[in-house]
């Protein structure tokens, strides 16, 4: 135990530990937990990681601190970058995408890790909730080596049995060959990390499975807030809490403004 930490710090730490030195880490708009997880990994154990934000590619391992952009397309991000994919070549060099790790949210996520940014409702022309659209997630999720689903909320409105619309294919309708049958070269979703727990996918069925529980959370609490039947192993470990060293780097170098410490 390392004393006090917030659940968002826990989420960032658990994601950071999955990221390997040398990988390319791409984070989309409005995903602060993933963004800070990537920075934490970079500073803790990833001097050869490259971070991709808004088309800019950077290695900032040497910096004591660099700020989080205030706004999606804050051009101040560019001053830390070494290159920029803004010259009409964003999707023209997929050969290194096997080393890329991507992070995705969603207004719905289903039991096979399919996600929805399109909208909620039965009829596409009469949506009850219109989402923002898919950004580049269908292309990224098709090709990257692996990706993580990161949710700000864990409830049965977000985690549903079947998405009303699918904007990225995780494991389709299930089965280990769900992606290869579609010809999708990328490795698919690895984990779904929420404020309650970490989930992964059963190797055979590719159904979502409880992997670890954050501090103070019970299995029942997770299942009650999930809109489908989770696979639950006989023994579910606790999520490894953030270490003293991780919290120190998080609070002094990655997140001195406390984005992860607020409620």
């Amino acid at each position: 135990m390392t004393g006090e930490y917030t659940v968002r710090e826990q989420m960032a730490a658990v994601l950071a530990r999955d990221l390997q030195d040398g990988e390319l880490l791409q984070v989309g708009v409005a995903m602060p937990v993933a963004e800070l997880a990537v920075r934490l990994a970079h500073l803790m154990h990833g001097p050869n990681m490259e971070l991709i934000f808004f088309g800019g590619r950077m290695n900032v391992h040497h910096l004591e601190y660099y700020p989080i952009p205030e706004y999606g397309w804050d051009n101040r991000v560019v001053r830390w970058t070494e290159s920029y994919s803004d010259r009409g070549h964003r999707f023209d060099q997929l050969k290194d995408w096997g080393r890329r790790v991507f992070f995705i949210g969603g207004i719905q996520v289903d039991q096979f890790g399919n996600t929805n940014l399109i909208g909620i409702g039965e009829d596409f022309n009469k949506l009850r909730f219109r989402g923002p659209g898919s950004v580049g997630t269908p292309t990224l999720s098709s090709h990257v080596g692996r990706y993580h689903i990161v949710l700000n909320d864990h409830n049965s409105r977000v985690l549903v049995e079947q998405c009303d619309f699918v904007s990225t294919v995780g494991w389709g309708r299930g089965g280990a060959d769900a992606r290869s049958r579609l010809g999708l070269p990328g490795g698919g979703p690895k984990w779904c990390v929420t404020p309650l727990c970490v989930m992964d996918f059963c190797e055979q069925s590719k159904r979502m499975r409880l992997r670890s529980l954050h501090r103070g959370i019970t299995v029942d609490e997770v299942q009650d807030n999930t809109g489908f039947e989770l696979l639950i192993p006989d023994a579910v470990p606790s999520t490894d809490p953030p270490s003293v060293a991780e919290l120190d780097v998080l609070r002094t170098r990655v997140d001195p403004d406390g984005l992860l410490r607020g409620t």
């Binding site: 580049g136 269908p138 098709s142 699918v166 990225t168 579609l182 010809g183």
Partner: peptide, 8 residues
């Protein structure tokens, strides 16, 4: 390819 298997 991006979009294969989705609702798009």
């Amino acid at each position: 390819r991006g979009g294969v298997g989705t609702s798009l």
